Computed example of a mutant assay.
Amino acid sequence: MPKTIVTPPGTGKPIAPFSPGTLADGVLYVSGTLPFDKDNTVVHVGDASAQTRHVLEIIKSVIETAGGTMDDVTFNHIFLTDWANYAAMNAVYAEYFPGEKPARYCIQCGLVKPDALVEIASIAHIGKA
């Protein structure tokens, strides 16, 4: 099955061997997204709300580059470093998914950079009836 790598304009070099998104047969897989700037520096240190917003804006840019919208998201994988940030993440998350919510799971775990509080990976179905 052919696949297309999806990289929004202006995306920095990933810190590991992966692509921001991969589109195959109308399904877009968005890699785990951390609150990084173009130089892979964690932004909004200590602010789970701002980090969640930053992560979801990056995910949105990958989805839009592939020709979709956030309404096309069907599943999110959410990783938090501390359950104390759950309410803050959910408040921002609800802004990006105001209607019917995608399926998801959320776990607490360590992340690749200690200052990162949240990571999200997404699956979106784009352009298939």
Rank of each mutant, 00 (worst) to 15 (best):
Val92His: 00
Met89Tyr: 05
Ala121Gly: 14
Thr11His: 08
Leu28Ser: 04
Asp25Pro: 00
Cys109Pro: 00
Lys128Gly: 12
Pro20Asn: 10
Glu64Thr: 15
Thr33Asp: 06
Arg104His: 13
Val27Met: 10
Ala88Met: 03
Met89Arg: 02
Ala48Val: 05
Arg104Val: 04
Pro2Asp: 11
Thr74Trp: 00
Ala121Glu: 08
Thr7Cys: 05
Glu100Asp: 13
Ala87Met: 02
Lys128Pro: 00
Pro98Ala: 09
Pro114Cys: 12
Asn40Ser: 14
Ser61Met: 03
Trp83Gly: 10
Gly12Tyr: 04
Thr11Pro: 02
Val92Ser: 02
Glu100Asn: 13
Ala103Arg: 13
Phe75Val: 10
Asp47Thr: 06
Ala121Cys: 15
Ala50Gly: 01
His77Leu: 13
Thr74Gln: 07
Gly26Thr: 08
Ser31Pro: 00
Val62Gln: 07
Thr7Lys: 12
Leu80Glu: 01
Ala84Gly: 11
Gly46Phe: 08
Ala66Met: 05
Lys13Cys: 03
Gly46Asn: 11
Lys38Pro: 06
Cys109Trp: 01
Met1Gln: 09
Gly68His: 01
Pro8Cys: 08
His125Ile: 15
Lys13Pro: 02
Ala116Pro: 05
Pro9Cys: 09
Arg104Thr: 07
Thr33Phe: 04
Gln51Thr: 09
Gly32Ala: 15
Pro2Ile: 08
Trp83Asn: 14
Asp39Pro: 01
Val45Glu: 14
Asp115Tyr: 03
Thr4Asn: 09
Asp72Arg: 06
